[in-house]
Design a protein around this nucleic acid. Structure first.
Ligand code: ZN
Ligand code: ZN
Ligand code: ZN
Ligand code: ZN
Lengths: 167, 167
DNA sequence: CTGATAGTGTTATGTTATAACATGTTATGA
DNA sequence: TCATAACATGTTATAACATAACACTATCAG
């Protein structure tokens, strides 16, 4: 299962986006979405989303709360959980079940069943496209069971970490 | 939440096994496995597994602890978590992330990446075979990322519950 | 016998999430 | 414009889930 790659030492999936762009795009997309849907993109909601998109990595609810506190917002638990629920409903945030953490969506405004690749050493997380990842998640309908939501998480060790371990 | 069973109204995936057989087989399989591997199938471990396989439904750690207490074992949290970790390591128990609950494996002694179908109304859970479910999880290797473990959970509403809702 | 390992027990604490209720703010629409 | 409903945020308390750290016993190899 081990492939060597000279030149490129990092897992591409973790590094293949221009995050400067990503940040600006994401803010713009969420603004437009809320405008179009007549939903309030309140300072609190904006702040929570900014906290998540800033470093674009999974954060626990209590980490988000700390950040909110530092920025002058209330930092009692329901504040974070309510906003996170709201952002998740609208597809701008996903929960990583394996980490009890939340992450900004990498591909909002497209209906999608996200899959996540999680390095258990460095805890980097990548949201991967179903097709791209080679997962085919073909059958949303299992024997008349109506699937509403899928959770797909792949945990392992990324190239960077596995190289670091063997040096 | 009552079950009607005229003809064939239930989702087959939830009902297609003879649980009497399942229970006996499961106990026998786990005994044999531990024997072969020279591992101790202690009274505590046996009891935890029995609790899980008895009704063959997901149970929270604290529910298991209550049951242990009723049967004369210690019911402090580490007791359950340690045994559950042990049973999970050996593939006889899986964790349902979406429910913070644990369930006896439906197909032990076969290396497998289980997928779960979860009804959010009745909380019934079925462990489904990858092939059977139509999920093909073909690519364990994503851009050099070495996948060690996959979590696949499909949440929705089962036929029984969806019929009940529309009556 | 001695020291290592494994299994269980116990206490305390850490972490994650929600219930319940209070207060302010923004539409709606007689 | 004034009631009222819906929404958003704030606060306190508590529930639910999970682990750290250490103690005690049994087993067994050297
Ligand atoms: Zn997404
Ligand atoms: Zn890594
Ligand atoms: Zn299984
Ligand atoms: Zn159901």
């Amino acid at each position: 299962m081990k492939k060597k790659r000279e030149g490129k030492t990092t897992s591409k999936i973790f590094d293949d986006h221009d995050h400067g762009m990503c940040f600006d795009d994401a803010i713009e997309q969420i603004e437009n979405y809320f405008l179009k849907k007549n939903l309030q993109f309140t300072p609190l909601r904006r702040k929570v989303f900014e906290i998540l998109i800033r470093d674009h990595k999974p954060l626990g609810a209590y980490e988000i709360l700390e950040a909110l506190g530092r920025d002058g917002f209330s930092s009692s638990p329901p504040i974070a959980y309510r906003v996170l629920d709201f952002l998740m409903e609208h597809g701008f945030v996903h929960k990583i079940q394996g980490l009890n953490a939340f992450i900004a969506c990498s591909n909002p405004n497209h209906s999608h069943s996200p899959a996540f690749v999680i390095c258990r050493k460095c805890e980097k997380v990548a949201e991967v496209d179903e097709k791209k990842s080679g997962i085919s998640f073909n059958s949303p309908n299992i024997d008349n069971f109506e699937v509403e939501k899928t959770t797909v998480e792949m945990t392992g060790v990324c190239t960077t970490c596995s190289r670091a371990a063997t040096i």
